[in-house]
C-alpha cells in the first residue's frame, strides 16, 4: 500500500476466553507483525463464562487496521473483535493515580486544580497527596502535565477502556 495513506488511531475491543497465555498471544501478534500498541487494558469481565475484555488503541493505515482486526479475529480464543472508532460513537475513559509532594502555595494550587479536574484525593499526608483522576486521555494528560510544576513524583495510568454508546453489547 502506498506510504502516504493516513495513519489513524483506532480503539479496538476484543472479547477473549480468559485463559493462560491469551495476553501473550495478543501482544505477541502486535510485536511479531510490527503493529503499534498505544494503549492496552485487560481484565476479566465475565467470571461465569470466563471472558476477558481487551481494549487496544493502535495506529495504522486503513489496510493495516483491517489486517490487525483480521489477525486478532483469527486467534482461536478470540470471540469478537470490534473497531469502536469506525462502528458508531463510543466513549473512552482512563484512570490515573497522581502523587504530588509539595507544601505551601504549591500544595494549595494542586488541590485547587484537582477540584477543577474533579480529581479525588485518595491519600493525604502533611506534604503529599495522591489524586485519582478519570476522563478521556487528554484530560488525564493535561492534569498530569499541570502537576509537573506542583511537585509531581509519581503517575500510574490504567490505559484506555472504551465502550460504544447506546444499548448494544459488544
Amino acid at each position: 500500500m502506498s506510504k502516504d495513506t493516513p495513519v489513524v488511531a483506532h480503539t479496538i475491543s476484543v472479547l477473549v476466553a480468559n485463559e493462560p497465555g491469551i495476553l501473550a498471544r495478543v501482544v505477541g501478534l502486535f510485536s511479531g507483525r510490527g503493529y503499534n500498541i498505544e494503549s492496552l487494558t485487560v481484565a476479566e469481565t465475565d467470571a461465569k463464562q470466563s471472558l476477558s475484555r481487551i481494549t487496544i488503541v493502535t495506529k495504522g493505515t486503513p489496510m493495516i487496521i483491517e489486517q490487525i482486526k483480521a489477525q486478532l479475529d483469527r486467534l482461536v480464543p478470540v470471540y469478537r473483535v470490534r473497531d469502536l472508532t469506525v462502528e458508531g460513537p463510543h466513549i473512552e475513559r482512563e484512570l490515573a493515580l497522581v502523587k504530588v509532594r509539595s507544601t505551601g502555595e504549591k500544595r494549595v494550587e494542586a488541590l485547587r486544580l484537582a477540584d477543577v479536574f474533579r480529581a479525588k484525593v485518595i491519600d493525604a499526608k502533611a506534604d503529599s497527596f495522591v489524586f485519582e483522576v478519570t476522563g478521556n486521555s487528554d484530560k488525564v494528560q493535561t492534569f498530569v502535565g499541570l502537576m509537573e510544576t506542583l511537585g509531581l513524583v509519581d503517575v500510574g495510568r490504567t490505559g484506555i477502556v472504551a465502550m460504544s454508546r447506546g444499548g448494544e453489547p459488544l
Binding site: 500500500m1 489496510m63 483491517e66 489486517q67 483480521a70 489477525q71 479475529d73 483469527r74
Partner: peptide
C-alpha cells in the same frame, strides 16, 4: 477462507 489473507499485500 482466511480473512487475514485478504487485502494483506494487495488490495
Amino acid at each position: 477462507i482466511d480473512p487475514s489473507s485478504i487485502n494483506k499485500n494487495v488490495h
